[in-house]
């Protein structure tokens, strides 16, 4: 049955939870807010997991996820079924993350994560000029090693690696979201993973190989 012919009064009979994301979006476009709520349920954790790699801060991450869903809500009629819903939504999220990341880079601050075992400790931000170039000081910072490595990873590599290895999206979907050729996506994923591992091990290999 086409959505255009479906009476809104029959919505209670629709088994929303069995519909695809794209079907849900079409129902939402037809006025069923319940469909939007279900999309939020399906994607809220995945989006948090994705955007946290850009913000490295729970509050900023939550703000970005909310903003992503708000844009989905406001722009529902701009979605066309030719694209997968997840591709469309991740494109919105990625653009938001990029602009937030640039804003943060301009601020040149670094977050010192709070010590979870110390109830009186709290997360704080330091201006870059406050940070001494002392390795031992950096070692004392309670930063998650992986987050730090991800931060250091170049943006081109980071976005595709996160989309593939954390979000587990298909290569063609990543190519659509990032607007890159498939070959570039695959090559960047290989190089990004390798660079990440290098950063984690804190080794520097003199040779680089372009695959």
């Amino acid at each position: 049955m086409g959505l255009a012919t479906m009476d809104i009064q029959t919505s209670s009979a629709i088994q929303f939870d069995q519909l695809s994301n794209e079907d849900l979006m079409e129902h939402f476009q037809s006025g069923h807010e319940q469909a939007f709520n279900l999309l939020v349920k399906r994607f809220k954790d995945r989006l948090h997991n994705f955007l946290y790699r850009y913000t490295h801060n729970h509050q900023d991450c939550e703000d970005l996820v909310q903003e992503t869903f708000l844009r989905v809500y406001r722009s529902k009629h701009s979605y066309e079924r030719i694209a997968k819903f997840s591709t469309w939504m991740y494109t919105i999220a990625l653009n938001l993350a990029k602009s937030e990341y640039k804003k943060k880079q301009r601020m040149t601050t670094v977050t010192i994560h709070k010590d979870e075992e110390d109830s009186e400790d709290r997360a704080m931000k330091l201006e870059a000029t406050d940070i001494l170039p002392d390795d031992s000081l950096h070692e004392k910072m309670c930063m998650n090693e992986l987050e730090k490595a991800l931060k250091e990873l170049s943006e081109d590599f980071r976005e595709v690696v996160i989309l593939r290895d954390i979000q587990q999206l298909a290569y063609d979907e990543i190519a659509n979201i990032t607007d890159l050729p498939m070959g570039t996506v695959k090559s960047r994923i290989n190089r990004g993973r390798s660079q990440l591992q290098t950063l984690l091990k804190k080794h520097v290999y003199p040779e680089t190989i372009s695959a």
Partner: peptide, 23 residues
């Protein structure tokens, strides 16, 4: 091998989820 290691690190990384009152 480096690439494989990087992938495994990410796959094993902890997951960030939404707060209970997010919705």
């Amino acid at each position: 091998e480096q690439s494989k290691g990087g992938k495994q690190v990410l796959r094993n990384a902890y997951s960030v989820t939404a707060a209970d009152d997010f919705e």
